[in-house]
Each structure stands twice: as C-alpha cells, then as structure tokens.
C-alpha cells in the first residue's frame, strides 16, 4: 500500500510565535519500497514520520495510506520508536508486550500465540518471551520493539531513528535484521535516520530533507544490488558516491554539486 504525503505543512505555536517545521512537503512511499528519510537536525524528519503514523496532525495538507486519509493511527501500520526503553512497556513480559499490540486486531488465542512466536523467531528472540525488557540489553530490547511492530503483520512499518541508542556492532546486526524481516513480512518501510551511511545502506530510495523550514532537498534512487552486505556493499563505488552526495546535501546544502 502506498503512503502518500500530499503538500503537508506543520507548524507549532500560533500567530506571531508560530514556527514552521515542515513546509509544503509531498512524497510517496510506494508499496514494498524501503525509503530512508535523512536530514540535518531540525529538518522535521521525525515530525514527518509521526504525521505519517497518525500521531500528529498536519497543519495543512493530507496524508493517505492507500486511498484512506490518515486521521489517527491507522490499522496495518506499525511504528518503531527511537527510545526502546520508553516505548516498550517495562512492566510487561516480552510476550505481553507483543500480545498487547494484538488486542486491537481481535484474533483468537491460538492465532495470537503463533503470531507472537513467529515474530520473536524472526528477530532472533525465540524462547525469550517470558523475559522482561529490563533483563535485556539495549539491542535485544530494540529487537523486541521490532517484533512488536511486526506481530500485527503490518503493510507499512515506520522507523524513527531506531538504532540511535545502540552501539556500532549491534547497530549493524539490527540493520541486517530489518533488511531480512522486511522481505519476510513483505512490508513497506519508511526509515528516519541521521546516519548517512545507514540511510544509503538500507534504502531503495533516499529522501533528503533540508532544514528551516523542513522541505525536501533531494530524492535519490539507490541502485545498489541486494542483498546488501556490511562489507561488500560499503566497498562499492556507487555506495561511496551516493554517500558523499547525501553528505553534501545534508552537511553543506549551499555548495553546488561537483559532479
């Protein structure tokens, strides 16, 4: 299902104090696509994602999931938040965290059970359902958050800087995990990050935002072969070229392209 962002603006505050964080932004994430959204801090990339998730309302413009306008959190769409320690419910076991995500979908007990098992297995946490988030490392907790997003078998998954809080090795593992489950669950992904390497490595397409006010600066297609590999892909000349292009757009938006 396509996610369509149609001339969306967002400002905070009112009257003279109003601050526009995003202006007249349009973008379409096509079905099955993996789109990275990257940009300098203050470009409104998280705001954009939260509006796509139905958690914030645009000041003007419209967001559609398929043909339906998004007015609240839509069914078939999951979010993985940046801060796992604050988005998972620490008083619930891992299993309970996942079944809570299923309460809205009214499935039978047996179906719930098998979905939870499957989701845990997909993220490499089979048999860890009875643990509590506080007994787990940060990386494991973020895996739980991903499993909780997948357990509803969504068509679209939105990820808001999901790996900002984990160390480098864990991060690489989690990146590959997301690329794998994305195919397993046939899910469309919009992935916000401030890490330029990550944005290139993960995506089919990169949307670069500029700041003050937030707007789309570029929309680049990533023509790197799949499956991606942490070593091989990053050695590819096209990777380096894309990487420096995105870097220039994000860090030095005023200099003209050299190529």
């Amino acid at each position: 299902m396509n996610v369509v962002v149609d001339r969306v603006s967002k400002s905070y505050g009112r009257g003279a104090e109003a601050r526009e964080v995003l202006t007249e932004t349009s973008l379409t994430v096509r079905s099955q696509e993996f789109v990275s959204i990257v940009g300098p801090s203050g470009c409104g990339k998280s705001t954009l994602l939260m509006m796509m998730a139905g958690l914030l309302r645009p000041t003007s413009g419209e967001i559609r999931l398929g043909d339906e306008p998004v007015t609240g959190p839509p069914a078939g769409l999951s979010v993985v938040f940046q801060d796992y320690s604050r988005s998972l419910f620490p008083w619930m076991s891992v299993r309970r965290n996942l079944t809570t995500a299923l309460t809205a979908s009214r499935l039978g007990k047996e179906e719930q059970r098998s979905r939870v098992e499957h989701a845990l297995e997909s993220v490499g946490l089979a048999g860890k359902g009875e643990m509590y988030p506080w007994q787990m490392s940060g990386g494991m907790q973020q895996r739980v958050a991903i499993a909780r997003a997948l357990v509803t078998e969504p068509t679209v998954m939105l990820m808001d800087e999901p790996f900002a809080a984990v160390d480098a090795q864990t991060r690489a593992d989690l990146e590959d995990l997301v690329l794998r489950v994305r195919h397993e669950y046939d899910v469309t992904v919009a992935f916000v990050t401030h890490d330029i390497d990550e944005s290139v490595y993960m995506a089919d397409r990169i949307v670069v935002l500029a700041a003050n006010p937030g707007r789309i600066a570029a929309d680049l297609t990533v023509d790197l072969p799949r499956p991606r590999d942490q070593v091989e892909t990053k050695l590819d000349a096209r990777f380096a070229k894309l990487r420096s292009e995105v870097f220039r757009l994000v860090m030095r938006p005023d200099t003209p392209a050299t190529t």
Binding site: P73, F81, T152
Partner: peptide, 17 residues
C-alpha cells in the same frame, strides 16, 4: 511518560487496555 502513551496509541489498543 508521554512516550508510553504515544506508543500505546500507535498500537491502537482499546481504551480499557
């Protein structure tokens, strides 16, 4: 913590949950 509320909202949990 509003993050928990936001997270619950995005999971579309019923009111009693």
């Amino acid at each position: 913590d509003p993050m928990w509320l936001r997270s619950a909202r995005s999971l579309r949990v019923p009111r009693w949950v």
